[in-house]
Amino acid sequence: MAERAEHNEETGSVGHIAPAKLYVAIWAVLMVLTLTTVLVSMVDIGPMNIVVALVIATIKGTLVVLFFMHLRYSPKLTMATVIAAVFWLFLLLSLTMTDYLTRAWSTYPGH
């Protein structure tokens, strides 16, 4: 532990230089996905519109975090931190949805 900490102090952050071609490729994918979002928004597919938009946004976010923010080349502790953040977001959304999705199940008249 102590050794790794010292190593980091000397070299700054964990250095990894990805080839420029990779960045360009990721950028191109992001642009295609953006275009897809725009095009899909013009077609009415009911509630699936929001699902598609969110799925595409999630894929884009994942690409940015993995490559532009170097998560793919980072130590396991950094990965665990990011996974924890996503997991906690999942907790927030899923447990909130236990309320919203079942509120109408109530059998009392008028509710």
């Binding site: 309320d99 079942t102 509120r103």
Partner: peptide, 18 residues
């Protein structure tokens, strides 16, 4: 501690199942 928050909302009109 992150899985219990709606116990503050029992009388607020949330779903009985939640």
């Amino acid at each position: 501690g992150f899985l219990v928050w709606a116990h503050h909302m029992f009388v607020a009109g949330i779903s009985v199942y939640a």
